[in-house]
Design a protein around this nucleic acid. Structure first.
Lengths: 343, 343
DNA sequence: AGCCCCCGTCGAAACGTTTCGCACAACGTA
DNA sequence: TACGTTGTGCGAAACGTTTCGACGGGGGCT
């Protein structure tokens, strides 16, 4: 562990000059700078984040606050983390994983009061999130994966549900379907103010209307059982529905089982879309479901990038919305003839 | 951010006395200690990890090295991370997530050379792992989730495949099955020296022999397609097999499809076990598969605990093997009569 | 009663950085 | 020629902690 003093000695300059030369914080003669840089390279010198942070500068450590697995963590969340970690690494930063326990605010106060981290990354952000308020008030730099209801001043990267819904609707409409149903996330997610739960439904409704196709919603199955029941109610009440978009893996399992139990086949009798789930999950199904896969890793990386940009200098708040990627599987097909004829 | 000086002033003692009182590193009079503790509490004082680390002590930061998602990261790996993060938190430590890129050794050198972390957590450990050698040689404290072929001197927490295999075999034998087949992880995982890939096969063979039931192996399907093909070959070559344990979600998907294609039912015609997969994944299947679920979160936590113990003082190397938990689903049943009669 | 020893406390140095005021030389200008 | 102005470089202080040598006083032993 070569220190800045070693570099200074080898380059025959003062310690402060080394700092200036390496950080470009003050003008340094070209020759001197070269000598310093060479000495640093030869010694394999790397400044200590500890000392840097202590002095009042930055530690180059970012904290990713992640909620304790309540309903259990999915692949999507996992990919936020890996994406964030990789981008942080690329940008010369470290990522601290901070497990959120009972009281997130206390946790945040704890974490930021230490002076260990330069900024915070929030995920699983609610429409109204107390953590956001706290961070804003405390003046701690942060960015979000997801967003609050009104994220005006805050950097964030989130799924573009409007574009996602448009793409999904275009897909089924292009196949010839005239009526689409949508199963939302379970009610407790809505109650918790979970952004995707609320936004997806609204955007799908809007997209269907804009595309001029029929739309049925109001189902919020949370388990396989509820998924199956919701499907039964759906086909009873709306026998003309030929395409169904489901949000939530567990509900989709139930739907698939109910479809099979009814003697229907996918995609012959029903086109099924899995919304906002990893394609890795989609291929667990049989047939492989057409999926709208959230760009989780990208979002995680984006959020890191935004946070670092904010730390470096402050421009206007950055916002980036990325649509889900449509991965066409074996569950998409034109609607069955019977219905067309009946219409 | 109250500093130790503030505490010292308020308690009317020297800075060094505060340090001694709070850390118990030197005897301090009971009254003084009380005063110091009270002052610290009133000020909400918390020592700076930065300053601590700089001084030469510990930073209380642990690094979790996690490999870039090659085959894609599963829920199991995710749970290592969450388990580790939570335990670290409980034990007053921080967890740094370090994404491993192309050259893991370089990454390690990079990370540890900074003096930022006290120790390292390794996951996805191979039978012969270069990272282990490096850390051992460099004298850097570490522990493993998983283990090398000969982990003698190194702290580690891993799955107890022997016990897991015994339990799985006991389960199917208890149901009345007389012949068990086992689908291993794909060949590339074996080639990479991935511990679970190698150990599981050996232990299942041993357990079946010990239990006196038939055993068929040699299949290493990596994809749903290969899973289906393996199943076809299996039933052709060994029609008397009534129970099958599969390792790997993707292969299981294919098996399930092939079973259905053949007109068989689960569990009526075949008892199917999913080995070493999250029960969260198991319930994606229909029917819900009986699973041997690895205690991932516990293992992650255990590894953290071991590392911290090692940091605190050195006892003999700790090793902890935990069996997978048997979660009985709807894919377990006594063997079909037809075969019994035929035998 | 005097001496010694130990308990308890203090002050200073050190860890590796950055920052800030200052000094010094060379240069152009008055 | 003398003076301000740049352009460079230096040294010291500060960040918050731990550690270690030193010091003072009170009690026990002779």
């Amino acid at each position: 562990m070569a220190s800045i003093r070693d570099v200074a000695e080898r380059a025959q300059v003062a310690v402060s000059t080394v700092s200036a030369a390496l950080n470009g914080t003050r003008p340094v003669a070209a020759g001197t700078r070269r000598r310093v840089e060479q000495a640093a390279a030869e010694l394999g010198y790397r400044p200590s984040p500890l000392a840097r942070g202590l002095q009042g500068g930055r530690t180059r450590i970012l904290a990713l606050l992640f909620p304790a697995p309540r309903g259990g963590f999915g692949l999507t969340q996992m990919q936020f983390v890996t994406g964030a970690a990789e981008t942080a690494r690329e940008l010369g930063h470290h990522l601290l994983l901070s497990a959120e326990h009972a009281d997130p605010i206390e946790e945040l106060r704890h974490l930021t009061g230490l002076g260990l981290v330069d900024g915070v990354l929030l995920m699983e952000v609610g429409l109204a999130d107390e953590r956001v308020e706290f961070l804003l008030e405390a003046g701690i730099p942060f960015s979000m994966i997801g967003r609050t209801r009104d994220p005006g001043r805050v950097d964030h990267a989130d799924i573009d549900f409007a574009a996602t819904a448009r793409e999904a609707v275009a897909h089924v409409a292009g196949l010839g379907h005239r009526k689409l149903a949508f199963f939302e996330l379970p009610a407790d997610r809505h109650a918790a103010g979970y952004g995707p739960a609320v936004r997806a439904g609204a955007e799908f409704a809007g997209a269907a209307r804009a595309a001029g196709i029929g739309y049925v919603a109001g189902f919020r199955p949370g388990s396989p059982e509820e998924g199956g029941q919701a499907f039964e109610r759906l086909v009873t009440a709306h026998p003309d529905v030929t395409a169904l978009a489901v949000m939530g893996d567990r509900a989709a399992v139930g739907v698939l089982a109910a479809v099979a139990a009814r003697g229907w086949r996918i995609p012959g009798d029903l086109t099924l879309l899995l919304v906002s789930s990893s394609s890795r999950v989609a291929e667990m199904f049989h047939p492989r479901l057409t999926t709208l896969e959230p760009p989780s890793a990208e979002l995680g990386g984006l959020a890191v990038r935004m946070l670092i940009d904010r730390l470096d200098g402050d421009g206007p708040p950055a916002r980036k919305l990325l649509p889900c990627r449509l991965v066409v599987g074996d569950s998409s097909a034109p609607p069955r003839r019977r219905k067309e004829a009946g219409a």
